[in-house]
Nucleic acid binder design. Sequence first.
DNA 1: AATAATTTTTAGATTTACCTAAAAATAAAA
DNA 2: TTTTATTTTTAGGTAAATCTAAAAATTATT
Lengths: 220, 220
Amino acid sequence: MQSHTEENYLKTIYHLAEKTVNVQTNAIAEQMQTKPASVTDMIKKLAEKGLIDYVKYQGVTLTETGKNTAIDIVRKHRLWEVFLVDKLNFKWDEVHDVAEELEHIKSIELIERLDEFLGFPKADPHGDPIPDKERRFAKTQFIKLIELKVGDSGTITGVSQHSSPFLKHLEKLGLTLGKQIEVSDVTDFDGSVEIRLSDKQVNISREVAKHILISSNGKN
Amino acid sequence: MQSHTEENYLKTIYHLAEKTVNVQTNAIAEQMQTKPASVTDMIKKLAEKGLIDYVKYQGVTLTETGKNTAIDIVRKHRLWEVFLVDKLNFKWDEVHDVAEELEHIKSIELIERLDEFLGFPKADPHGDPIPDKERRFAKTQFIKLIELKVGDSGTITGVSQHSSPFLKHLEKLGLTLGKQIEVSDVTDFDGSVEIRLSDKQVNISREVAKHILISSNGKN
DNA sequence: AATAATTTTTAGATTTACCTAAAAATAAAA
DNA sequence: TTTTATTTTTAGGTAAATCTAAAAATTATT
């Protein structure tokens, strides 16, 4: 049984481990909005509990148990996000903070019933995959929109940036999950991308295009 | 902004205040499964925050603010219980502990949307009234089943005992919320009560009859 | 390789919520 | 109205999660 804080550390380490093998103290501190000294304290505790492997000055990696715990939290977080959007009509940019609290509710029964109630969704409102109760993620293959060539098309199936301003921006442009898009032009000058939607044409910056994930069905 | 613990204290005091005017330290300690000394610490803090009125050795009463906070928690607890039973198919004896955690989720928006999603229920799965967002309780008039005379009838609309064994017992007897009942006999010997349901006849002890609440429509 | 810069850890404090044991106040009984 | 019993508070301490400031280890740079 872990505290909320311990769970948050495990989740953070899990996400950071997607980028680097050994997760560093400072990276954790930055992510958790806390001080490195506090992180050192906590990782010692998590190591003692067998949730992470820790060698002084060398960063940490999750053990099997630690990873499982982290995945369970990710699962809960994403299922609650689906609930908030699908059932309570929250917008996709409004759900993160509440899900951050809900993910710590401990009942396993609750999550399995919630999963069923929601129809066993495979992805959350931002397109992030939801692991099943055996902690398996559905395989998804995304391409960043920025990587598409003129003429390529596909479906928006995720975003790699979850900030509210970014999501609101996409919403305003009509670039929401499931939308069918085609790249109609790429500007040499600033790399901005022109996109054809079913009903309109929109222009997005390179920066925005980097964070839109497409499941491609375009010419290859 | 209160901690979970502070919220639990306020809720406990609120419920105890239904029975006695000045709520005593020991009563709080017993209810919260903690020691009187810890209660003294906490009530000092709550008094400083203006959530309770506290005179040394004289027990406490909730201030307006404290009472409002407590009612908000009660509202959240009961709405979540409705969610768990109505949407996730939990049994009425299984929801308390999970609701105990869910009641501390802080978003007001969440609760208002949940309330709407559930159809603005007026009572939780045990028949306890759910205050609306202005903190008003629907007026309900209950009579304890034990107070009915032979021939009186009514509808089961609540219970005043929430323990799992008790609720499971009622479930097994078919005495669930909304059921139409009529008292067909009262045994002189032990005060046990015979009850006619639409399809069968059941016998319950005095003790059980004390904790079943009836909205009477019987002969008066 | 020596020095500088960065990262990480240690040492020592703080806050929250709890505890035990003992003292003080209040209430009940003789 | 004393004495006894109960309730409540105080005093002093612990564990969790944080902090600051300083020391130690690692990495990068000259």
